[in-house]
């Protein structure tokens, strides 16, 4: 066993063993860090190093395990006891409680195209919007747009006007194109500060500021838009309510919205949707506000850690990211990250 091999083996061992080797050989070994310990072991005379190498071999062969293969399927059994035994010393095999990279990468792929079946929460939201205001708080990409399109269709069927607002002009434009494809070009209009494209269409897209201005004008009498047929207002990205500069516009819009109009607030996951719902119920006495809070993602999300050297390992101990249950980093991630932070990486 040459120096390089020995060093690699030593690095993979817990520091406890290194102290055992160093006992009687290195002065004040208990004061040394792992790296310094390894350095001083390697600096020992060759016969002592031979002896240590022998001991190392004994230790690493005793739990009969082949090193260097990561993600041993057996070791990742969920029924295995959680505490890792100190005998498992092979370098890249993660302790038993953690899962391997293979498990994590398992199941990548494209599902068969199948007819779209709405989730229960989506159905619930669509049903609720028929008779009350609705707040949908759901993670990104979980299908809030579906709720919006269903609600728009409902309202259109009743010959009502629908206003869809988004916080950014860029998002307005994207939605304009999306809805134009979905409902047909003549059904969708867009309003900006100076432009009115197809403003007589049943579905109007605008930024929230524009809607606020329309509501200002409506309440002061000089109205140029059909507010009496306004059946539904959809506020996308309503978490902007907390935006330091523009949040006030959302509040004004919600306060000034006519009472007969249904509100549909689509928001990313926020901490207090209940509070928002209580507020809306309080200020709009004729209708209650239905809260739909969906925290589960429709596509499970998994976390990986990519070391700058190109090594890919799981980030967390669990396979899928689980919400609100705390987190523990995967031991490999911890090891690699410590290395990254403290050792200049070449």
């Amino acid at each position: 066993m040459n120096d390089a091999d020995l060093q690699r083996e030593l690095v993979s061992l817990p520091i406890k063993y290194l102290h055992k080797f160093a006992k009687g050989r290195i002065h004040r070994h208990f004061r040394l860090s792992k790296r310094r310990l390894i350095d001083s072991i390697l600096a020992l005379p060759s016969e002592q190093k031979m002896a240590i190498a022998h001991e190392v071999e004994q230790i690493s062969t005793s739990p009969k395990k082949s090193p260097a293969t990561s993600g041993n399927p057996k070791s990742s059994s969920p029924f295995y006891p959680k505490r890792s035994s100190p005998k498992k010393l092979s370098k890249s095999a993660p302790p038993s409680s953690a899962i391997g990279l293979q498990d994590l990468l398992e199941g990548i792929g494209v599902p068969e195209p199948k007819p779209f079946i709405p989730d229960d929460w989506q159905k619930e939201a669509v049903e609720a919007i028929a008779h009350s205001d609705v707040i949908v708080s759901a993670p990104t990409g979980s299908g809030k747009t579906f709720v919006a399109t269903e609600a728009i269709q409902q309202a259109m069927a009743r010959n009502q006007t629908v206003i869809y607002t988004s916080p950014l002009k860029a998002l307005s434009n994207t939605k304009y194109m999306e809805f134009s494809q979905f409902f047909g070009k003549d059904q969708v209009g867009i309003l900006t500060g100076d432009r009115r494209d197809n403003s007589q269409a049943p579905l109007l897209i605008m930024t929230t500021e524009i809607l606020r201005n329309i509501l200002y004008d409506a309440t002061s009498g000089d109205l140029d838009l059909r507010l009496h047929t306004l059946g539904l207002v959809i506020l996308d990205e309503s978490q902007y309510l907390a935006d330091p500069e523009r949040g006030v516009v959302w509040e004004e819009t919600l306060i000034l919205c006519p009472t007969q109009t249904r509100l549909l607030l689509l928001s990313a996951s926020i901490g207090n949707p209940q509070e928002l719902a209580e507020w809306l119920t309080a200020i709009r006495p004729t209708t209650s506000c239905h809260l739909i809070r969906h925290t589960k993602r429709s596509v499970p999300l998994r976390a990986l850690y990519l070391h700058p050297s190109g090594q890919l390992v799981p980030l967390l101990e669990n396979r899928d990211i689980q919400q609100q249950k705390g987190y523990r980093f995967h031991p490999e991630t911890k090891r690699l990250f410590n290395e990254y932070e403290f050792k200049p990486y070449r």
Partner: peptide, 18 residues
């Protein structure tokens, strides 16, 4: 949340690289 496309992926991933 941008990870994992509904209807196009079985799973989505977040890769953390330092």
């Amino acid at each position: 949340g941008r990870g994992g496309r509904r209807g196009k992926d079985f799973v989505g991933f977040v890769v953390v690289t330092p």
